[in-house]
């Protein structure tokens, strides 16, 4: 028995080895290299790897702009994921009731998800162009004042959040729809017999049963949102002021405009650690729930 298990495990590892090797080369090596740079004095001007310990991390966390970027990233990620989840859940629940043309609805819903973030940003940049964009032109035609969607420091981040929700919600819809489709019918039938209404059924049956899928959706989207870069780069370059400067953009600027690859890598590593921490906590909660 034990020999059989060992053989099976060996065969399993054998099949997994090519994939794992590729992962190690494609993902592991760059991450290791970035880690080495973040602990060194390497810049684009002086490209030598000499060990400096945690000095780059200390430099980054001593800067108010870093904390500003971190705070904005947290606000952005929480707001987008919350929005995507709520809108996505609502759409998934409605789609559950749809019988005819269900495939058409799904096809339409996946369109934004299939677009590259750069294309999405360019489209929205044209739509929201303050003077010639269709949104402000429509407002003007209705006699309403034009709005500076991306140039007002109090509004720019909210606009970015809206655009992100517009694009990413379809992914959440797909995940939650798959989760809803896999729910067993029996608890609903039993609840109906006991006189439970739709709201009670949703609250006490659908939501608890959907929790694992929902948590997966939230984790995946949180990871995505923490890494958002394209939208900022195309739409605002982090402005006005620093009102939309996410941590990923901060790291990019430090590495390529500031020529400090070491400090840019340190900032990127802090971002990676935050994402890892969130992932670990969510999976811990998920496992505990399962057990």
């Amino acid at each position: 028995m034990s020999t059989k298990v060992t053989d099976t495990a060996r065969i399993g590892w054998g099949f997994a080895a090519p994939g794992l090797t590729m992962l190690a080369i494609v993902m592991g090596l760059p991450v290791f290299y970035a880690a080495a740079i973040s602990l060194s004095s390497m810049t684009l001007i002086r490209p030598a790897l000499s060990f400096t310990g945690l000095a780059n991390f200390a430099q980054i966390v001593s800067e108010p702009l870093f904390w500003n970027s971190l705070l904005i990233t947290l606000r952005y990620s929480v707001a987008t994921v919350a929005g995507e989840f709520l809108v996505g859940l609502a759409i998934a629940l409605m789609l559950r009731q749809v019988v005819t043309l269900r495939g058409v609805y799904f096809a339409l819903l996946t369109l934004p998800m299939a677009m590259s973030p750069v294309a999405v940003a360019l489209i929205w940049r044209m739509l929201l162009q303050p003077n010639l964009g269709i949104v402000n032109q429509t407002l003007a035609a209705m006699g309403l004042p034009m709005v500076d969607w991306l140039g007002d420091s109090g509004l720019a981040l909210k606009t970015m959040i809206f655009i992100d929700i517009w694009q990413q919600t379809s992914f959440v819809v797909l995940l939650l729809s798959a989760g809803l489709a896999s729910l067993p019918r029996e608890p609903y039938e039993a609840a109906s017999v006991d006189g439970a209404g739709p709201v009670q059924q949703f609250w006490y049956i659908t939501l608890p049963l959907l929790r694992p899928v929902a948590m997966i959706a939230v984790v995946i989207q949180l990871i995505n949102e923490f890494r958002t870069y394209d939208l900022i780069y195309i739409l605002t370059k982090g402005g006005p002021g620093v009102s939309t400067e996410l941590l990923s953009f901060f790291a990019y600027k430090r590495a390529f405009q500031g020529l400090a690859l070491n400090e840019g890598s340190a900032a990127a590593f802090i971002l990676l650690l935050i994402v890892l921490l969130i992932t670990v906590v969510f999976f811990f909660l998920l496992e505990r729930r399962k057990n």
Binding site: Q129, P130, N131, L132, N136, M146, V147, D148, W149, L150, G151, D152, S153, A156, L235, T236, G239, P240
Partner: peptide
């Protein structure tokens, strides 16, 4: 300046000037 000047680039200013705005 025009509405949205704080997010405008060279292309935006060119369009405005070209359109006589």
């Amino acid at each position: 300046a025009q509405t949205g000047a704080l997010s405008a680039t060279l292309d935006d200013t060119m369009r405005l000037m070209c359109a006589g705005d």
